[in-house]
Design a protein around this nucleic acid. Structure first.
Lengths: 314, 314
DNA sequence: TCAATTTTTTGTCTAGGACAATTTGTGCAA
DNA sequence: TTGCACAAATTGTCCTAGACAAAAAATTGA
C-alpha cells in the first residue's frame, strides 16, 4: 500500500485508527519522544501516515504482552519481524488448515470476488458440515486473515469482505438447524468494547449442533443488562466471546464485574482467542480457549447438573 | 428498571455509555454545573447513575439539533417529554407498521422467546417477500425498537435480541437471492464509528432485489480503504449507511473526506435514518433518507449511465 | 423576506503535574 | 534451582485551567 497517499491525521483520527487514547499518545511523545507529530497552524498535532502505521503495529504487539518502552524505539522492520515471530509460535492455525481451501479463499479475497467467495464458502460448509466447517476451517482461517492484515499482506477492506462473507455463511448454517432445547440454556453475547461477531457466531454454531438451547444478544451488551436478561430469561450459562483485539486487563475487570452481578447458580463461560495467550484468569469463570473443547464442557455440565429438569427436555 | 442497582461510574465508563467525550463532560461541569459528579478518595469523578441516565438522554436529544445549554438545566421529566414529542413528529413509523406484526414482535421480545421470534420473523419474510419485509416491516420496526429503548420501555438486552434476530432473518433472505450482475456495481459499507449493521443489510436487500451487482464490506471501513477497494474492484457506486447514532457533523466530515479520495466517476450514495432529520448535506453525494427511494435512484443511474458496458451485462 | 454580518455557544485541543496499578527486578529462604 | 516477599521502574489515566476555531443563533442591512 502507498503510505504517501494518506494525509496527516489529527490526534482524534489516530485514536480512532490505533485504539490508543489521546492521553496515551501525548504521554508517549513526552516520555519516549515517539510519536513525534508535526504541528498545524494552531499548534495542534498532525501525525504523518508512517507514524500512524507504526503506532498501529505497536498497538497490536502490546496486546501480546510486549512493553511500549521497547517497541517505540524499534524500526518498522523490527516490529514486523516481531509480529511475524509471534504469529509463528502458535502455528496450529497454519497446519490445521486445509491448504486447498485456504489457497482458494485467499485468491478470491484478493480479487474482491464476492460471488466466488460466497460459492466457495457455501460449498465448504456443505461438504464439511457446520461443526467441522467452524473448527477446521473458519477458526484457523479467521486467525490467518487477522494476522495477514496486521502484517500488511491484505487490505482492511479485504479482511472486511472476508468477515462479512464468513458471517453470512455461518448464519446460513445456523438457519438450517432447528432451534435446540437441551440443557444448558445459554445466553450468548460479548461485553462492551468487543465488537467481533465472528467469534460469537462460531460459538453459537458449536452450541447449536449440540442441541443446546441458545439465545444470542449479539455484541456489546453492558454487564448490568446481561445480568438482568440472564435472570429474566432463566439462563443457566452466560457465554461470552473475546477476540484478541480486547485488552486482557479490561476483559478480566469486566468479567469480575459481571460475576459479582450474577447469582452463583448461573455459570459464566468465557471463550475466544484472547484466552489462548493470556495467563491471567479468574475463578468462578470457565475459560474455553478453543472451540473444540466446547462439547466436553457441555457434556460435563449435563453430567453434573443432570438434576436440572431442562436436561431431559427436547 | 432499578437505577439504584447501578454503581457510580468513572468518567471513562460514562464516556463509553453516553458517547460524550471526557473533555466534553468536564467542560459541561465547568460551564453549566451539570453533571456534578461525586469524587472518590483520589479526587476522581464518580457519576451517580441518575446523572448518567440524564446524560444519555441529553446525548440522544443533541443529535436532534437541541443545544446542551438548555438541556442540562431541565429535569428528567422534561427531557423525556422532549424525546417523546420528537418521536411523535415523524410518526410515519407507527402508522406504516402493520399492527398485528408489531404486537406479536413486541410480545415475543418481552418474553425473550428467541425461537418464537425467529419463527415469527421468518413467516413475515415468507409472506411479504424480501422487499416489502424490509420497507414495510423491518425499517419502521427498527425505529420503534430504538425509540422504545431510549424511552426505557424495553431493555438494552431486548433491543439486542431484536437486532440479532432481524439481522439473521435479513441474511437468510439475502442468501436466497442469486447474486445480481446488473448495473451499477455497488460497494456497500459504513464509515468508522457507525457500527449498526441492520441499516446496511436492509440497503443490501433492497439493492439485491433490483439485481444490482453488490459487494458488502460490513461495517466501519476507513475512508482510505474504501477508496482503495472501490478503485481496485471497479465499483460504480460506494453505498454508505448512517444510523441516527452517529453525530451529523462527524458524518459530513467523513463523507467530504471520502469524496475527496474517490475519482468523480464513482458516485457516493449516503443512506440511513440520519439524513431524514439532518438538513446539512453536501454536493457530489446522493442522499437517500428512505429505502423506498432506492429503486428510483437505481433506475435513474441506469438511465443516465446507459453507455456503461456493465449496464447491459447480466 | 433573504443574505451578510456579528455575537454567542460549544467542542476539542494544549501543557504539565500527579498518582495508582501493573510489571519487573532483587534479595533471601527453602 | 525454585518460590516468595518486597522495592523499583514502568505505564496509563486522571486532574486543572487556558485557548481558540467551528458552528449556531442573533442581528443587521437590502
Amino acid at each position: 500500500m502507498q503510505p504517501a497517499e494518506f494525509p496527516d491525521a489529527t490526534i482524534s483520527a489516530v485514536e480512532r485508527e490505533t485504539g490508543l487514547s489521546k492521553d496515551t499518545l501525548r504521554m508517549w511523545e513526552r516520555r519516549y519522544g515517539f510519536p513525534r507529530p508535526l504541528r498545524d497552524a494552531n499548534d495542534e498535532r498532525l501525525y504523518p501516515s508512517d507514524q500512524v502505521h507504526k503506532l498501529r503495529l505497536i498497538s497490536r504487539l502490546l496486546d501480546r504482552g510486549l512493553r511500549p518502552r521497547q517497541l517505540v524505539g524499534e524500526t518498522l522492520e523490527q516490529l514486523i519481524a516481531r509480529a511475524e515471530s509471534a504469529d509463528a509460535t502458535p502455528s496450529e492455525a497454519a497446519h490445521r488448515l486445509d491448504s486447498a481451501l485456504f489457497e482458494t479463499t485467499l485468491r478470491l479475497l484478493r480479487a474482491y470476488d464476492e460471488a466466488g467467495l460466497r460459492a466457495h464458502l457455501s460449498a465448504a460448509l456443505q461438504r464439511l458440515g457446520l461443526q467441522r466447517f467452524v473448527i477446521e476451517f473458519a477458526a484457523p482461517m479467521n486467525r490467518w486473515v487477522g494476522d495477514a492484515w496486521s502484517r500488511g499482506q491484505i487490505a482492511i477492506s479485504q479482511e472486511h469482505l472476508y468477515t462479512e462473507q464468513m458471517q453470512h455463511q455461518l448464519r446460513q448454517g445456523l438457519g438450517a438447524i432447528y432451534p435446540g432445547s437441551r440443557s444448558p440454556s445459554v445466553m450468548l453475547t460479548t461485553l462492551p468494547g468487543e465488537e467481533h461477531q465472528l467469534g460469537l457466531l462460531m460459538a453459537h454454531a458449536c452450541l447449536a449442533v449440540e442441541g443446546v438451547r441458545c439465545v444470542s444478544l449479539g455484541v456489546q451488551t453492558p454487564a448490568w443488562d446481561i445480568a438482568e436478561a440472564a435472570r429474566q430469561h432463566g439462563a443457566d450459562v452466560v457465554g461470552l466471546s473475546f477476540s484478541e483485539a480486547l485488552r486482557p486487563k479490561i476483559a478480566i475487570d469486566m468479567l469480575r464485574d459481571l460475576r459479582s452481578r450474577l447469582p452463583a447458580s448461573i455459570e459464566i463461560w468465557a471463550g475466544g482467542a484472547l484466552w489462548a495467550r493470556t495467563r491471567r484468569q479468574i475463578g468462578a469463570v470457565r475459560f474455553i480457549s478453543h472451540l473444540d473443547q466446547l462439547p466436553a464442557v457441555i457434556a460435563e455440565y449435563r453430567e453434573h447438573r443432570s438434576h436440572d429438569p431442562r436436561a431431559q427436555a427436547g
